[in-house]
Structure formats: C-alpha cells, structure tokens
Design a protein around this nucleic acid. Structure first.
Lengths: 225, 225, 225, 225
DNA sequence: CATGAATGAGTTTTCATTCAT
DNA sequence: TATGAATGAAAACTCATTCAT
C-alpha cells in the first residue's frame, strides 16, 4: 500500500527489508519506493541521494550502480508511477458499461489512487512538472493518454445520446482538458481536506461535467455576446 | 499597479536595468522581479540567490540587506504576486453586471494574467504549493478569496434564476472548488499549448460550468447506479 | 559608569545620546564605548562593525571616518581600557602607606574594577590576548607595568622587614608574576561566581601571598630535594 | 594515549600525514589534531574549516562527514584535550607520596604539558572560555576536577601537619582556586618567556603556596588594618 | 558633519558523484 | 554483489569596507 504501484514486491510491513543479497529487480524496486517517498515529500531538489539510500536500506554506490544518477532515478520513478496510475484507472473501467458509468468508475479510481498514494501523486502532479522538460514530458505523455481516453468517452456519450447538433472535436477536446484539469485540482482538495471522499469528489465532477455535457449535446451554449 | 507589481515596469529583456544608486524601494522591486522570474523558471530550491542577484543587476549582499533571506524573499514574491493577481481579476469584474458576465470577465482576466505573467503564475501555482506550509498557506489564502468570490457569483446566479430546488451550500462550494481548479489547470493548457487564447479557455469553462449550473438549479443531478 | 574609563563623557543614562552633531571627541568615545561592549561580549571576530555602529547610534561610515578600521578600533579600545584600569589601580594606592597596605589597596581596586567593567576586562584579559601579537603586545605592556609595580612593593616589604637572607630578584619576579596571574584568574572567579566580593578575593590573595612572602624573607624555601 | 590524543603521533611538521584511504578513527584524530592547532593559533572564529581541512590533508566534506559542524568539532577538541591534560597530570601524581610531593609532581606535569602542547593549552585556556557557555562549561568541568584534587591535597597536608587551628573549608577552597589560577597564568609565562622551565615555575608556585599554607595551618592570617 | 547605497571576498555547510576494495 | 572512504562544486549567508551625495 505504501509507496506506489507496479511492483508487488513493493514491501509490506517488513520495513527496511530483512536480508542482504537480494535479486537486482527487488533491490531496484526498494530503491524506487524510497525515492518516490523522498521525492514526493521533499521535492526533487531537496531530496538527497543520501536520504534515499538510507531509506532504501542500501549504500549510495549501489543506488548509483542500479539507477545511474539522480535524474535517471527520478525519471524511472515518474515512469513507474505513471504506469501504476494508468493501470489503476484502466483496471477500474469495465469496457462493457455505458460511457457515463465508465467515466464515473475512472474518476473514482483516480481520486482513490491519489489519496492512497500521496507521494506518488505528488511526484507526478507537482514535482515532475516543476523541474524542466525532461520530466514534464514524461508526465505529459501519460496525461495525454488520459485526456484522449476521456475524450473518447465523451464522444461515445454524445453518440449514445444521438445528439442532433453534436459537439465538435474542439469542444470535446476542451471539455476533456477541463475535466481532467478539474480532477487534478480536486485531487489536492480530497488529499488535503481529509473530509472529502473519492466518491464525493467524483460525484461533484460528474454533476459539474456530465450534466453540462448533456446540454452541449443538445446544442445549448453559453456565449458572451 | 497599486502596492503590487508585475505591472509593466517589469522590464523587457533589458535585464540589468538602469544605473547604480537607486532608492531602496526601486531596487527592492527589481530584486523581486528577478526573483519571481528565477523562482518561476527554476523552482524554489534550484533558484540560486546568485542568479537572482545577477539578474537584478545587483550584488548578493544587497539582496540580503533588503530581503533578509531566501525564504523571506520567496514569501515577499508570493505575497506581491498574489496581490497582483487578485487585483487584476478584481479590476476586470464590474460589480454592476449580471453574475454570468462577472464570472466571464473574471475568468478571462485570470487566464490573460496567467498567460502574460507565466513566472508569477508558476510561483503561485506550482512553486509556492510544493515547498511547505509557510508558503502554501500564503497562496491558499488568496485562493480561498477567489473561491469564495466565485461561490458568491454562483449563488447570485441561482437566485437570479429563481430556482425552485436551489442547490445547497455544499453543492455550491463543490462547484466553486471544481471551477477554480479547472481554471487553474486550464491556465497551464493556455500557457503551454500556445494555440488557445484566454477567451477560448474562459468560454470552454463557462460552457462547462454555467450550463451545468443551470441544470443543478433545475434540480437535475447525476448519480451512480 | 557603564562602559569603561578615561572619558567622563562616557554617557550617563542619556542612552543613545540625544543630539546629532556632537564634537568629534565625544562621538569617538561613544563609538569606543559601543565597541568595548561588543568586543567584550562577542569577541573580536564575532563583533561586527554593523552592531558597533548601531549600538553607538551612528552610521558605519562615521565609524570608519574616525577610527579607520576594525583593527585600529580594537587597538584604541585596548589602549583606552588599559589606561583606565591602570589609573583605577593607581588611584587606589596611596604612596604613603606601608607596602602591604598598598598591595591590598591595589588588589581591591583591581578586583572591583574588573567586576564593574566586565566588558573592558574581557577585552583586556581574553580578547586582546587571543588575537595575535599586535593586540597582545598592547596588553602585555600594561601588564608588565603592573608586575613591575608589584615587584617594587614586594621588594619594599622585604626591605621594611630587614630580612637577613633577602630573596633574590628572580624570586621576587616569579612571585610578582604568580601574584598578578593569580589575581587575573581570581578576577574571573569573582565575576562569574557572583558570590565572592572584591575584598574577599583580595584577602584570599594576601593570605596566599603575603604570609608566604614573609617566610621567603625569613629564608624558608620549599624544595623537592 | 588512551582514548585521548595529543600523544606524540601528533605529527611534526609533516602536515598532510600518510596516504589516502585511512580508517575513519585515524582520520578523525588527524582532523582533530589539525583543528586543535588551528583553533589554538587563530581562535575559534578566525579558524576556518578550509584551513583545518587542508592542514589535516583531507577535503572539507570529509571533515563535515565525520565531525558534523564547526561547533561539534570544537567541542570534540576541547573534550579530547581536556582528557589528555587531566590524564597527563594524573599519570604524574603517584598516590603513595606525601601531599606536597604529589602537588609538586602535578604542577610540574601541568606546566610541562602546557609547554609541550601550546595549541591544546590555548584551546582549553583561552578559546574555549571566550566563546559561550557550551564550550566554557566543558572546560569548567575539567578545571573543577583539578581544583577539587588540589583541595584534597591541601587538606591532606593540613592533616599531616597535625595543625592546631586547621584552616576552614572556605580557606582551602580559596587557596585551591588561587593556586590553580596562578598555575594557569604562570603557564602562559612559561610558554611565552621561553626562559622559564616547567620545574622552575612549579618551584615558584610551591614556594608561593606551600609555605604560605604552612602559616595558614599555624593560624597566621593577613588582615587589613 | 553624516549617511544611504553598494560590494568583493570569505564563511559554513550540503550534495551528487566516484574510487578502491 | 556491495560498501567505506573520499571529493569537486556550489549554495546560503556575512562582513569589513567604500563611494556619492
């Protein structure tokens, strides 16, 4: 539960991992767990390789042997956590359902993931985006995947509704951007307030977006004139 | 303008503005200009006082003499830019207008400000929130002001519409949170894509939110199952 | 009373010295008062010209205009305070008295002075001696004067007693050194303990030294054989 | 030798001792040797970590890795040297001897130690006492041990002499204070004059104190008027 | 007579990174 | 496979000192 995602070997309560001499893959995951936690809490610059190595229970040279440099380590963390987040969302969305149910399931999974893995979410949402292209691009790629996925759902919904004046691609794109953006912001709200649950946040967003989408589909628009 | 900043005297690419020997108040603003730019681009930790001083065209000791420490300098920047952003939004909103026109004006001003002052926006939105309570609280205060202001507008809109089943306070609060959050996220979209204008972003959000609000007012809700 | 010595203009309770525009001599004394206090409490290196100037109630350039540099300022302080200490001791010793009474009076005055001017004493005893020849020599000169004076008293005492086997010059010199040294050490004891008075300390030393001197005069010696 | 230091491996003028890659314990001692020398000669503030590191033949980060900070390094030096001085004195005093012989042996060892380790002596006597409680207390503890030890000897001497009017505790305490103080001061005399030996200084003090003590035992006192 | 404005040079401290074993 | 020993480079911050007014 602690750190993040893909592993499985991600260490339960064993803490500081009993034995020396572990297979490389396991050690690497431990290091990345420690790194995600440290990066997430301290930020990229403030996190020190010393602290990461100590938290991982290994010596610094070993971290360098496996992960090569702070930048590569950070990149590896971003990639792993991005995959894990995507996987969590995809796992939740059952393809057979209607578009709105799929969106609802995805949003709920997303908020839950962000709440359960705050360090991972901090790495993806805050740290990665504040430290230059190399890292930001990594996250942008994942985000684009999500935005595209949401756009597909919205389009499907419009089609399901057999709308007379169907929203254009640009409308859909803007809506998807706004929806994902709002979700990201609400994630912070959920994490920080402590009193708002993943389901509540998802419901707020669905009300915010889905009903509005319905009107878009019906051709209603707000416009300054 | 006011006591604030990011106004326009912000100097183009001239860097190293003006001559030696300026009154303290002027130098302080120059230093903060440089600091905002540096913090915004590099992040709090990565920004070095050396770089800030050089960009401001002064020596490091002078920066310390006037602004005391990196933390204080950062705080001063946050405060100044938060005031400036608030002021820009408030200036744009004419109290006489209808609620939707007010919201529209505010959003447009907000996106325009974020686009024109990307470093200030980065400081407020990313840097300040990633570096511990002291700074985050500063920004949270400003954000709360904005959220409250938006909530007032939404409530006014509901009243104007004379809704039969008026949305509760919690609905309004959630909506305002989501709206502000979406706006924050869209700001990045506007800044990074380069192809989306402030007005477009504002329109997207109005469609996204205002129409949906209309349905809320009418009592429509989306709910799971 | 506060600071130190020779002045008189040494500022009563007026504090921060009301008026601007004072004659140079007065300003200089004020600066030196501040300097002695700062040097005495912080030590030579840790004392900053900034603090001294502020404590003196003048601007830093003025300090430099009058006292030229930190080193010169320190030297000036040492000289002034050395004179003041000497003067205090000399004032106390009435030439007409017997040798032991003179010594007693001198010791008492010395302890009292050190207790009443702790910063001056710190400058002379600790700071000046820990920061290189230039300063140490200044103090050594004063100390030698005192040692010589004490030696004269001891010799006079021996003569007064019409001793049969009079102590040699080297004996006297050693005794004077030890006596002055013991006095210096006891001064710290008096200042720090708070419970020992100048008179007590002087009495301890007189017992310690004078009675022993009597035996020396009588020709008694301790020797490891 | 013991856990202590200033032993003899203290390196002559070789500086930059031995090769790269030494065990931590050895390097630590080298660093402390360099630190004692530097602190002793320059004073706490004026000593720079740069200089200490260079003199120790290592890089600055290593000094920080092992000794953590300038303050901790200074404290470590004080402690080590205080132990070493105490050990030297204790080694010299054979418990079987008479009180006066014990005192004589202790004084001689003390003067010899101060003469042979001038930097250590400077650190203990001057630097540690001029830079605030934390350091001063460290030395005060050692000094108190010595004063107490001397007091015991004086008391033993009084008892040996079977005095009729034995000196009170306060008399003894004052005497011990004065004796230790005089010894401290004479140490400077020995170190600086160059012409006075440890034995001579010890003899001077014995004459100064022991004979006087004899009179105290006999009930003689000096008193004003 | 007096100062606000300004800085070059140095301080302590930390960090990512690499050998030698 | 794994590490104790070691460092170059840079960061935040301070200080004695000087001009221009």
């Amino acid at each position: 539960m602690a750190g993040g995602a893909s592993g499985g070997a991600r260490g339960g309560t064993r803490g500081r991992t009993g034995g020396r001499r572990m297979p490389r893959a396991v050690r690497e995951q431990q290091m990345m767990d420690a790194a995600v936690r440290t990066f997430g809490q301290r930020g990229y610059r403030a996190a020190s390789m010393d602290e990461i190595a100590e938290l991982a229970g290994v010596s610094k040279p070993l971290v360098y042997l496996y992960l090569h440099s702070k930048e590569e380590l950070f990149t590896a963390c971003i990639r792993r956590e991005a995959q894990a987040l995507l996987a969590a969302v995809e796992r939740a969305v059952e393809p057979g359902l209607s578009a709105d149910r799929q969106l609802w399931a995805g949003l709920t999974a997303f908020f839950a993931y962000a709440a359960e893995h705050p360090d991972a979410w901090s790495v993806l949402h805050r740290q990665a985006r504040s430290h230059g292209e190399p890292f930001a691009l990594e996250v942008a790629a994942m985000r684009d995947e999500i935005v595209a996925f949401v756009a597909v759902l919205l389009e499907a919904a419009a089609r399901e509704a057999g709308s007379p004046g169907p929203p254009g691609e640009r409308d859909i794109a803007g809506l998807a951007q706004a929806l994902v953006g709002a979700a990201e912001s609400l994630a912070a709200w959920v994490n920080e307030s402590g009193t708002v649950s993943a389901k509540e946040a998802a419901a707020t967003l669905m009300n915010f977006a889905w009903v509005g989408l319905g009107d878009l589909i019906k051709g209603e628009r707000w416009s300054p004139h």
